[in-house]
Computed example of a mutant assay.
Amino acid sequence: MATTSNRGFFDRAGAIEPPESRVQPERPSERKAEDRSEPRRARTSMGSMAAYMERESESVRELDALRERFDGASATKFIDPRLVAPSEWANRHEDAFATAAFSAFREEIQSAGGNIQPVRIRRIPAARLGEKPANAELSPGKYSESVQPLYEIVYGHRRHRACLELGLPLLAQIDEEMNEQTLFTLMERENRGRQDLSAWEQGVMYTRALSKRLFPTRRALAASIGLAEGTVSKAVSLAELPDAVIAAFASPLDIQFRFAADLNKALQIDPDGVLSRAKSLAQVQDKARRGDAERQDGQQVLAALTAPKDATSPDALEERKLVASGKVIAKIRLDRAGRTKITLMLPLVAGQEEKLDQALKALKFI
Protein backbone atom coordinates (compact mmCIF):
# COMPACT_ATOMS: atom_id res chain seq x y z
CA MET A 1 0.00 0.00 0.00
CA ALA A 2 1.37 3.43 -0.93
CA THR A 3 2.38 5.73 1.88
CA THR A 4 1.10 9.30 2.14
CA SER A 5 4.28 10.77 0.62
CA ASN A 6 4.27 8.20 -2.18
CA ARG A 7 0.59 8.85 -2.85
CA GLY A 8 1.34 12.54 -3.49
CA PHE A 9 4.05 11.60 -5.92
CA PHE A 10 1.85 9.15 -7.86
CA ASP A 11 -1.03 11.62 -7.87
CA ARG A 12 1.21 14.11 -9.62
CA ALA A 13 2.41 11.47 -12.03
CA GLY A 14 -1.13 10.34 -12.75
CA ALA A 15 -2.15 13.87 -13.56
CA ILE A 16 0.22 13.86 -16.53
CA GLU A 17 -1.80 13.56 -19.69
CA PRO A 18 -0.54 10.72 -21.88
CA PRO A 19 0.90 12.14 -25.09
CA GLU A 20 -1.08 9.71 -27.35
CA SER A 21 -4.38 11.24 -26.22
CA ARG A 22 -3.58 14.51 -27.97
CA VAL A 23 -0.99 13.68 -30.61
CA GLN A 24 -1.97 12.26 -34.02
CA PRO A 25 -0.05 9.27 -35.38
CA GLU A 26 3.05 10.25 -37.28
CA ARG A 27 3.53 9.67 -40.94
CA PRO A 28 6.88 8.14 -41.97
CA SER A 29 7.81 11.31 -43.87
CA GLU A 30 7.20 13.43 -40.78
CA ARG A 31 9.37 11.15 -38.64
CA LYS A 32 12.29 11.68 -41.00
CA ALA A 33 11.92 15.44 -40.72
CA GLU A 34 11.81 15.30 -36.94
CA ASP A 35 14.55 17.22 -35.12
CA ARG A 36 16.67 14.45 -33.66
CA SER A 37 18.43 16.94 -31.31
CA GLU A 38 15.35 17.00 -29.03
CA PRO A 39 14.64 14.11 -26.64
CA ARG A 40 11.87 11.74 -27.64
CA ARG A 41 8.60 12.33 -25.86
CA ALA A 42 7.21 9.65 -23.59
CA ARG A 43 4.38 7.62 -25.15
CA THR A 44 2.88 6.11 -22.00
CA SER A 45 1.95 7.15 -18.46
CA MET A 46 4.88 5.19 -17.12
CA GLY A 47 7.14 6.89 -19.63
CA SER A 48 5.88 10.29 -18.58
CA MET A 49 6.45 9.43 -14.95
CA ALA A 50 10.00 8.27 -15.71
CA ALA A 51 10.70 11.50 -17.60
CA TYR A 52 9.35 13.49 -14.65
CA MET A 53 11.59 11.60 -12.25
CA GLU A 54 14.59 12.24 -14.52
CA ARG A 55 13.90 15.97 -14.57
CA GLU A 56 13.51 16.01 -10.78
CA SER A 57 16.82 14.16 -10.38
CA GLU A 58 18.59 16.63 -12.67
CA SER A 59 17.28 19.54 -10.60
CA VAL A 60 18.55 17.90 -7.44
CA ARG A 61 21.98 17.40 -9.02
CA GLU A 62 22.12 21.08 -10.04
CA LEU A 63 21.19 22.19 -6.53
CA ASP A 64 23.84 19.90 -5.04
CA ALA A 65 26.45 21.34 -7.41
CA LEU A 66 25.55 24.91 -6.43
CA ARG A 67 25.56 23.99 -2.74
CA GLU A 68 29.02 22.45 -3.08
CA ARG A 69 30.33 25.48 -4.97
CA PHE A 70 29.13 28.06 -2.46
CA ASP A 71 29.32 26.03 0.73
CA GLY A 72 31.28 28.05 3.30
CA ALA A 73 31.27 31.24 1.22
CA SER A 74 30.99 34.36 3.34
CA ALA A 75 28.85 37.39 2.66
CA THR A 76 30.41 40.78 2.07
CA LYS A 77 29.93 43.74 4.36
CA PHE A 78 31.33 47.22 5.00
CA ILE A 79 33.85 47.61 7.82
CA ASP A 80 36.24 50.25 9.12
CA PRO A 81 39.50 49.88 7.11
CA ARG A 82 41.46 50.63 10.30
CA LEU A 83 40.34 47.24 11.57
CA VAL A 84 42.23 45.59 8.70
CA ALA A 85 46.02 45.26 8.50
CA PRO A 86 48.56 43.77 6.06
CA SER A 87 49.53 40.21 6.86
CA GLU A 88 53.03 38.89 7.37
CA TRP A 89 53.11 37.95 3.68
CA ALA A 90 52.11 41.38 2.34
CA ASN A 91 53.97 41.89 -0.93
CA ARG A 92 53.44 45.52 -1.93
CA HIS A 93 56.42 47.85 -1.48
CA GLU A 94 55.65 51.33 -0.20
CA ASP A 95 56.74 52.78 -3.57
CA ALA A 96 53.77 51.00 -5.17
CA PHE A 97 51.48 53.43 -3.34
CA ALA A 98 53.37 56.52 -4.52
CA THR A 99 52.82 56.12 -8.27
CA ALA A 100 50.60 58.05 -10.65
CA ALA A 101 48.75 54.80 -11.33
CA PHE A 102 47.83 54.39 -7.67
CA SER A 103 46.76 58.04 -7.42
CA ALA A 104 44.40 57.51 -10.35
CA PHE A 105 43.13 54.30 -8.75
CA ARG A 106 42.47 56.10 -5.47
CA GLU A 107 40.55 58.85 -7.27
CA GLU A 108 38.40 56.18 -8.90
CA ILE A 109 37.65 54.66 -5.50
CA GLN A 110 36.78 58.11 -4.15
CA SER A 111 34.43 58.93 -7.03
CA ALA A 112 32.63 55.61 -6.50
CA GLY A 113 32.29 56.24 -2.77
CA GLY A 114 34.34 53.16 -1.93
CA ASN A 115 35.60 49.94 -3.42
CA ILE A 116 33.05 48.11 -5.56
CA GLN A 117 35.11 44.93 -5.83
CA PRO A 118 35.42 43.55 -2.28
CA VAL A 119 38.77 42.79 -0.72
CA ARG A 120 39.23 39.43 0.92
CA ILE A 121 40.30 39.32 4.54
CA ARG A 122 40.64 36.75 7.31
CA ARG A 123 40.01 37.13 11.00
CA ILE A 124 43.18 37.39 13.08
CA PRO A 125 43.51 34.34 15.35
CA ALA A 126 42.52 35.06 18.95
CA ALA A 127 46.02 34.23 20.20
CA ARG A 128 47.45 37.13 18.16
CA LEU A 129 44.87 39.81 18.90
CA GLY A 130 46.44 42.92 20.37
CA GLU A 131 49.81 42.38 18.69
CA LYS A 132 51.31 45.07 16.49
CA PRO A 133 50.12 44.42 12.92
CA ALA A 134 52.61 42.54 10.79
CA ASN A 135 54.04 44.85 8.11
CA ALA A 136 52.22 47.81 9.63
CA GLU A 137 54.83 50.00 7.96
CA LEU A 138 52.92 49.45 4.72
CA SER A 139 50.28 51.80 6.11
CA PRO A 140 52.35 54.33 8.09
CA GLY A 141 50.53 56.44 10.64
CA LYS A 142 47.24 54.61 10.13
CA TYR A 143 47.29 52.35 13.18
CA SER A 144 47.03 53.36 16.80
CA GLU A 145 46.63 51.77 20.20
CA SER A 146 43.00 52.85 20.25
CA VAL A 147 42.08 50.92 17.10
CA GLN A 148 43.36 47.37 17.09
CA PRO A 149 43.03 45.46 13.79
CA LEU A 150 40.81 42.40 13.85
CA TYR A 151 41.51 41.20 10.31
CA GLU A 152 44.40 40.63 7.89
CA ILE A 153 44.35 41.17 4.14
CA VAL A 154 44.30 38.10 1.92
CA TYR A 155 44.21 40.20 -1.23
CA GLY A 156 43.14 43.72 -2.12
CA HIS A 157 46.00 45.75 -0.60
CA ARG A 158 45.56 48.62 -3.07
CA ARG A 159 41.80 48.84 -2.50
CA HIS A 160 42.33 48.72 1.27
CA ARG A 161 45.04 51.38 1.16
CA ALA A 162 42.89 53.70 -0.93
CA CYS A 163 39.92 53.40 1.45
CA LEU A 164 42.23 53.79 4.45
CA GLU A 165 43.70 57.04 3.11
CA LEU A 166 40.31 58.38 2.02
CA GLY A 167 38.53 57.42 5.25
CA LEU A 168 35.93 55.39 3.35
CA PRO A 169 34.31 52.16 4.57
CA LEU A 170 35.86 49.02 3.13
CA LEU A 171 33.74 46.43 1.33
CA ALA A 172 35.19 43.08 2.37
CA GLN A 173 34.59 39.36 2.19
CA ILE A 174 35.54 37.83 5.54
CA ASP A 175 36.98 34.36 6.06
CA GLU A 176 36.67 33.37 9.69
CA GLU A 177 39.42 30.77 9.33
CA MET A 178 42.24 30.40 6.80
CA ASN A 179 45.67 28.83 7.19
CA GLU A 180 48.92 30.54 6.22
CA GLN A 181 49.59 28.55 3.05
CA THR A 182 46.11 29.24 1.70
CA LEU A 183 46.44 32.96 2.45
CA PHE A 184 49.87 33.11 0.79
CA THR A 185 48.74 31.24 -2.33
CA LEU A 186 45.53 33.23 -2.80
CA MET A 187 47.36 36.53 -2.29
CA GLU A 188 50.13 35.70 -4.73
CA ARG A 189 47.83 34.46 -7.49
CA GLU A 190 45.37 37.34 -7.12
CA ASN A 191 48.01 40.08 -7.11
CA ARG A 192 49.90 38.58 -10.01
CA GLY A 193 46.66 38.52 -12.00
CA ARG A 194 45.81 42.16 -11.29
CA GLN A 195 48.32 44.99 -10.96
CA ASP A 196 51.52 43.07 -11.61
CA LEU A 197 53.96 42.89 -8.76
CA SER A 198 57.54 43.80 -9.60
CA ALA A 199 60.05 40.99 -9.83
CA TRP A 200 61.72 42.24 -6.66
CA GLU A 201 58.43 42.35 -4.70
CA GLN A 202 57.71 38.78 -5.73
CA GLY A 203 61.22 37.74 -4.72
CA VAL A 204 60.87 39.30 -1.27
CA MET A 205 57.56 37.52 -0.76
CA TYR A 206 58.98 34.15 -1.85
CA THR A 207 62.14 34.59 0.24
CA ARG A 208 60.11 35.38 3.34
CA ALA A 209 57.90 32.33 2.83
CA LEU A 210 60.92 30.05 2.41
CA SER A 211 62.78 31.48 5.38
CA LYS A 212 59.69 31.04 7.58
CA ARG A 213 59.37 27.44 6.33
CA LEU A 214 55.90 28.10 4.98
CA PHE A 215 57.03 25.90 2.08
CA PRO A 216 59.87 23.37 2.43
CA THR A 217 61.42 24.01 -1.00
CA ARG A 218 61.26 26.38 -3.95
CA ARG A 219 59.71 23.58 -5.96
CA ALA A 220 56.87 23.19 -3.45
CA LEU A 221 56.29 26.96 -3.42
CA ALA A 222 56.27 27.11 -7.24
CA ALA A 223 53.77 24.25 -7.44
CA SER A 224 51.46 25.97 -4.94
CA ILE A 225 51.32 29.28 -6.82
CA GLY A 226 51.41 27.81 -10.34
CA LEU A 227 54.77 29.17 -11.49
CA ALA A 228 57.85 27.51 -12.93
CA GLU A 229 60.54 26.79 -10.35
CA GLY A 230 63.03 28.76 -12.47
CA THR A 231 60.86 31.88 -12.23
CA VAL A 232 60.71 31.56 -8.46
CA SER A 233 64.50 31.12 -8.31
CA LYS A 234 65.08 34.26 -10.41
CA ALA A 235 62.80 36.29 -8.16
CA VAL A 236 64.54 35.01 -5.03
CA SER A 237 67.98 35.84 -6.48
CA LEU A 238 66.84 39.46 -7.02
CA ALA A 239 65.57 39.73 -3.45
CA GLU A 240 68.93 38.42 -2.19
CA LEU A 241 70.99 41.09 -3.99
CA PRO A 242 73.17 43.23 -1.69
CA ASP A 243 71.39 46.23 -0.16
CA ALA A 244 73.85 48.56 -1.90
CA VAL A 245 72.80 47.20 -5.30
CA ILE A 246 69.10 47.59 -4.48
CA ALA A 247 69.75 51.20 -3.36
CA ALA A 248 71.37 51.97 -6.73
CA PHE A 249 67.92 51.80 -8.35
CA ALA A 250 65.53 54.71 -8.01
CA SER A 251 63.02 52.17 -6.69
CA PRO A 252 63.19 48.40 -6.17
CA LEU A 253 60.16 48.27 -8.46
CA ASP A 254 62.52 49.08 -11.37
CA ILE A 255 64.31 45.75 -11.00
CA GLN A 256 63.17 43.25 -13.62
CA PHE A 257 63.40 39.48 -13.91
CA ARG A 258 65.82 39.68 -16.83
CA PHE A 259 68.32 41.65 -14.69
CA ALA A 260 68.95 38.65 -12.44
CA ALA A 261 71.50 36.78 -14.57
CA ASP A 262 73.56 39.87 -15.51
CA LEU A 263 73.67 41.28 -11.99
CA ASN A 264 74.68 37.99 -10.37
CA LYS A 265 77.32 37.40 -13.04
CA ALA A 266 78.80 40.88 -12.49
CA LEU A 267 78.87 40.32 -8.72
CA GLN A 268 80.78 37.08 -9.21
CA ILE A 269 83.36 38.62 -11.57
CA ASP A 270 83.89 42.04 -9.96
CA PRO A 271 82.06 42.34 -6.62
CA ASP A 272 84.08 45.31 -5.39
CA GLY A 273 83.57 47.21 -8.63
CA VAL A 274 79.83 46.56 -8.67
CA LEU A 275 79.41 47.71 -5.08
CA SER A 276 81.52 50.81 -5.70
CA ARG A 277 79.45 51.77 -8.73
CA ALA A 278 76.27 51.01 -6.81
CA LYS A 279 77.27 53.45 -4.09
CA SER A 280 77.89 56.21 -6.64
CA LEU A 281 74.58 55.48 -8.34
CA ALA A 282 72.73 55.68 -5.04
CA GLN A 283 74.12 59.19 -4.56
CA VAL A 284 72.86 60.16 -8.00
CA GLN A 285 69.41 58.78 -7.23
CA ASP A 286 69.31 60.73 -3.96
CA LYS A 287 70.09 63.92 -5.85
CA ALA A 288 67.37 63.06 -8.37
CA ARG A 289 64.80 62.77 -5.56
CA ARG A 290 65.74 66.30 -4.50
CA GLY A 291 65.47 67.51 -8.07
CA ASP A 292 69.21 68.16 -8.41
CA ALA A 293 69.91 65.44 -10.98
CA GLU A 294 68.21 63.26 -13.55
CA ARG A 295 66.62 60.04 -12.39
CA GLN A 296 68.32 56.91 -13.72
CA ASP A 297 65.92 54.24 -14.92
CA GLY A 298 66.35 50.53 -14.40
CA GLN A 299 68.08 49.87 -17.71
CA GLN A 300 70.61 52.66 -17.15
CA VAL A 301 71.44 51.37 -13.68
CA LEU A 302 71.84 47.81 -14.98
CA ALA A 303 74.24 49.00 -17.69
CA ALA A 304 76.30 50.92 -15.15
CA LEU A 305 76.46 48.11 -12.59
CA THR A 306 77.43 45.48 -15.15
CA ALA A 307 80.04 47.59 -16.98
CA PRO A 308 83.21 45.60 -17.82
CA LYS A 309 85.86 45.75 -15.13
CA ASP A 310 88.45 47.18 -17.56
CA ALA A 311 86.18 49.75 -19.16
CA THR A 312 88.26 52.83 -19.96
CA SER A 313 85.57 55.22 -21.20
CA PRO A 314 82.50 54.86 -19.03
CA ASP A 315 79.47 56.78 -20.14
CA ALA A 316 78.32 59.67 -18.06
CA LEU A 317 75.54 58.85 -15.60
CA GLU A 318 74.84 62.45 -14.68
CA GLU A 319 75.61 65.68 -16.48
CA ARG A 320 75.01 69.23 -15.36
CA LYS A 321 75.60 72.33 -17.40
CA LEU A 322 76.89 75.66 -16.09
CA VAL A 323 75.38 78.57 -17.97
CA ALA A 324 76.47 82.20 -17.94
CA SER A 325 75.06 84.98 -20.11
CA GLY A 326 73.02 82.41 -22.00
CA LYS A 327 76.04 80.30 -22.91
CA VAL A 328 77.14 76.90 -21.63
CA ILE A 329 80.56 77.53 -20.13
CA ALA A 330 81.16 74.13 -18.52
CA LYS A 331 79.79 70.60 -18.15
CA ILE A 332 80.07 68.54 -14.98
CA ARG A 333 79.80 64.78 -15.34
CA LEU A 334 79.70 61.90 -12.86
CA ASP A 335 80.87 58.68 -14.51
CA ARG A 336 80.26 55.03 -13.63
CA ALA A 337 83.33 54.93 -11.43
CA GLY A 338 81.96 57.78 -9.33
CA ARG A 339 84.50 60.31 -10.65
CA THR A 340 83.54 63.92 -11.28
CA LYS A 341 84.75 65.47 -14.54
CA ILE A 342 84.55 69.15 -15.40
CA THR A 343 84.79 70.16 -19.05
CA LEU A 344 85.26 73.85 -19.80
CA MET A 345 83.56 74.86 -23.04
CA LEU A 346 85.51 78.13 -23.47
CA PRO A 347 89.27 78.86 -23.33
CA LEU A 348 90.61 80.38 -20.13
CA VAL A 349 92.01 83.87 -20.32
CA ALA A 350 94.81 85.34 -18.26
CA GLY A 351 94.26 84.98 -14.52
CA GLN A 352 91.39 82.51 -14.79
CA GLU A 353 93.55 79.41 -14.33
CA GLU A 354 94.73 80.70 -10.97
CA LYS A 355 91.16 81.46 -9.89
CA LEU A 356 90.04 77.98 -10.96
CA ASP A 357 92.91 76.44 -9.02
CA GLN A 358 91.92 78.36 -5.90
CA ALA A 359 88.26 77.38 -6.31
CA LEU A 360 89.09 73.68 -6.56
CA LYS A 361 91.34 73.84 -3.51
CA ALA A 362 88.59 75.57 -1.56
CA LEU A 363 86.32 72.62 -2.39
CA LYS A 364 89.10 70.26 -1.24
CA PHE A 365 89.15 68.50 -4.61
CA ILE A 366 92.94 68.69 -4.73
Results as ranks from 00 to 15, higher is better:
residue 1 M to W: 05
residue 2 A to H: 11
residue 12 R to P: 04
residue 12 R to L: 14
residue 20 E to W: 13
residue 22 R to Q: 09
residue 26 E to A: 15
residue 27 R to H: 12
residue 28 P to V: 04
residue 41 R to G: 07
residue 42 A to Y: 04
residue 50 A to E: 12
residue 50 A to G: 10
residue 51 A to M: 10
residue 55 R to G: 03
residue 57 S to D: 06
residue 69 R to V: 02
residue 73 A to N: 09
residue 75 A to Y: 10
residue 77 K to H: 07
residue 82 R to G: 05
residue 92 R to L: 08
residue 95 D to S: 15
residue 97 F to P: 03
residue 97 F to Q: 02
residue 99 T to S: 15
residue 99 T to A: 12
residue 106 R to D: 05
residue 107 E to R: 15
residue 114 G to C: 10
residue 115 N to I: 02
residue 128 R to L: 11
residue 130 G to S: 10
residue 136 A to Y: 09
residue 140 P to A: 09
residue 152 E to V: 04
residue 163 C to I: 11
residue 167 G to R: 07
residue 168 L to A: 14
residue 170 L to G: 05
residue 173 Q to F: 04
residue 178 M to V: 09
residue 181 Q to I: 11
residue 187 M to D: 09
residue 190 E to M: 05
residue 193 G to L: 09
residue 195 Q to Y: 14
residue 195 Q to D: 13
residue 203 G to H: 08
residue 206 Y to E: 06
residue 208 R to A: 14
residue 213 R to P: 01
residue 216 P to S: 15
residue 217 T to Q: 08
residue 217 T to L: 06
residue 225 I to E: 00
residue 225 I to G: 00
residue 225 I to N: 03
residue 226 G to L: 01
residue 230 G to V: 06
residue 231 T to N: 07
residue 232 V to K: 01
residue 232 V to G: 05
residue 233 S to M: 06
residue 239 A to W: 05
residue 244 A to S: 13
residue 248 A to L: 13
residue 257 F to R: 06
residue 261 A to F: 08
residue 271 P to K: 03
residue 276 S to T: 14
residue 282 A to P: 01
residue 283 Q to T: 08
residue 286 D to C: 10
residue 293 A to G: 07
residue 294 E to R: 14
residue 296 Q to M: 07
residue 301 V to P: 03
residue 306 T to V: 11
residue 309 K to W: 08
residue 314 P to G: 12
residue 314 P to Q: 05
residue 314 P to W: 09
residue 327 K to I: 04
residue 328 V to D: 13
residue 328 V to C: 11
residue 331 K to L: 15
residue 336 R to Q: 06
residue 337 A to P: 00
residue 338 G to D: 00
residue 339 R to K: 15
residue 343 T to P: 01
residue 347 P to M: 05
residue 349 V to G: 15
residue 351 G to H: 04
residue 352 Q to A: 12
residue 352 Q to G: 04
residue 354 E to F: 00
residue 358 Q to K: 15
residue 359 A to Q: 09
residue 366 I to N: 11
